[in-house]
């Protein structure tokens, strides 16, 4: 492959997959995080039914991220997962709890309250663990000869606790604006009141993380203040999106708050990517150090380029089929 660097294409594909995961599973995890605060049990039924048809497809982006890393960047997979062992385990346990809660909550009537907590708790734990993993990635990993040599709890620090809590708040914001889109009446009024407060918390955490990052990773300071000034466009657009979220909620729009929240997340994510580029296992390994052999990358690439558009098409069709407000009595009952 002359002139085209497969490794960069793969990095873009996996970055895209992870972004899709954060945006899509983000809002249904967010619905779970908001679950205990819902006005009543009927509202919880509606909340769960708003994501019941789509959560499983959303979560599949995580599997693509995992399997894609294993195939295209085996080093990332084999260093990061043992380093994050307990965090990854917590995330998976959280996802299992909330996944079965969908099915069990509506079928096991007497223990419904238990499954409410399984859904909420699982969503919170999974979101926190994912946020902490992002924080750990910013901090970097202790490696020697392509192996992780740090301790089992290195991923847990004041900084990663902040990023963990920040992602919980972020997903809750995504969930609340999703519910603005999908619900009406008193449920919609409740999330409309909630969204601006969540937005405030999220912006506060973003600000704190932005100030703190150069302290845990000095190269981040250099990246943002010496090299290419163009990257400042990402935080600027994220802030603009945040303003659109606030305005959309304030003006009682249905769809714009959710769209703008997704945009805000995407721009923040791009900001994170340019901070760490090209390191995939910071501070020691770049994309090219971690890449698999060109043969594997090329073969898979052909498959990916054909299949991802198809996936996006039928995913879009599914959202179209389930468009509009959640209908009373539809879904699980």
């Amino acid at each position: 492959m002359h002139g085209i660097d497969l490794t960069i294409i793969w990095a873009i594909i996996i970055a895209f997959g992870i972004m899709m995961y954060v945006l899509m599973d983000g809002f249904d995890l967010g619905v779970g995080i908001l679950f205990p605060f819902a006005p009543d049990e009927d509202a919880r039924d509606v909340m769960m039914n708003s994501v019941a048809p789509v959560w499983d497809g959303n979560e599949t982006w995580l599997i693509l991220g995992g399997a894609g890393l294993l195939a295209a960047f085996p080093l990332v997979y084999s260093v990061l997962l043992p380093a994050l062992y307990i965090g990854v385990f917590l995330m998976l346990a959280g996802l299992i709890f909330r996944g079965v809660a969908f099915e069990f909550r509506f079928k096991a009537e007497r223990s419904r309250n238990l499954w409410n907590w399984a859904f909420a708790g699982g969503s919170m734990v999974a979101a926190f663990a994912q946020g902490a993993v992002v924080g750990a990635y910013i901090e970097g990993f202790n490696t020697v000869d392509g192996r992780y040599v740090g301790g089992p709890l290195d991923w847990l620090s004041p900084f990663t606790v902040l990023t963990g809590l920040g992602l919980v708040a972020g997903y809750a914001l995504l969930g609340s604006t999703w519910l603005v889109l999908k619900t009406e009446g008193y449920i919609q009024q409740w999330v409309r009141r909630l969204a601006p407060w969540l937005l405030l918390v999220v912006l506060g955490v973003f600000a704190a993380v932005s100030v703190w990052t150069p302290l845990v990773d000095p190269s981040a300071f250099e990246r943002w203040f010496s090299v290419i000034r163009l990257i400042w466009i990402f935080p600027a657009l994220a802030l603009l999106s945040a303003w659109l979220v606030w305005r959309g909620v304030h003006r009682q729009h249905h769809a714009t708050p959710f769209m703008a929240t997704m945009a805000m997340f995407a721009f923040t994510y791009f900001g994170l990517l340019v901070t760490k580029w090209p390191y995939v296992v910071p501070p020691n390994y770049t994309l090219w150090d971690a890449a698999s052999a060109p043969g594997s990358q090329l073969f898979l690439l052909i498959g990916v380029l054909f299949v991802i558009p198809v996936i996006l098409a039928y995913t879009a069709w599914t959202y179209w089929v389930f468009r509009g407000k959640v209908r009373a009595g539809e879904g699980y009952h």
């Binding site: 693509l64 399997a67 894609g68 890393l69 294993l70 195939a71 295209a72 085996p74 997979y77 084999s78 698999s292 052999a293 043969g295 594997s296 073969f299 898979l300 498959g303 990916v304």
Partner: peptide, 11 residues
Amino acid sequence: VGDIFGAPLAI
């Protein structure tokens, strides 16, 4: 073996 084993998993 990620190069090989990962490919069918990703597909």
